[in-house]
């Protein structure tokens, strides 16, 4: 059965510029959810993130998840992070 949970999403580097926010405290997400569907859900909230498609690290509970069929079981309060690479130095 599919239930909703509330996660926190953090946007780093360029993704903070594209979304205009550094983080969102409570984002309702169905669980279980594939990592692809989670990414699509974020894209629907912030269409400009599509510029980073296949060029970004997505992390759930501070662990890398490949964007694909991989099924994620989320819990309330889980941290989702969108991390594009930084290139400056």
């Amino acid at each position: 059965m599919c239930v909703l949970c509330v996660v926190c999403v953090l946007y780093f580097a360029q993704s903070a510029d594209l979304t205009g926010v550094r983080g969102e405290e409570s984002v309702a997400v169905p669980t279980p959810i594939s990592s692809q569907d989670l990414w699509t859900l974020l894209l629907r909230r912030h269409p400009r993130l599509s510029a980073l498609q296949r060029r970004v690290v997505l992390a759930v509970r501070q662990q890398y998840v490949a964007i694909g069929d991989h099924l994620l079981t989320l819990e309330d309060g889980d941290e989702v992070a969108v991390v594009p690479p930084l290139s400056g130095g």
Binding site: Q14, A51, R54, R55, V57, P84, P85, S87, G88
Partner: peptide
């Protein structure tokens, strides 16, 4: 492995555009 594709050039910000606080690097 992490970034198979480079970011589109128009989305890349460098230090001379975006700035950087010296202590961070």
């Amino acid at each position: 492995c992490l970034y198979p594709l480079p970011p589109p050039p128009e989305t890349v910000t460098n230090c001379s555009d975006g700035g950087v606080l010296g202590v961070v690097p």
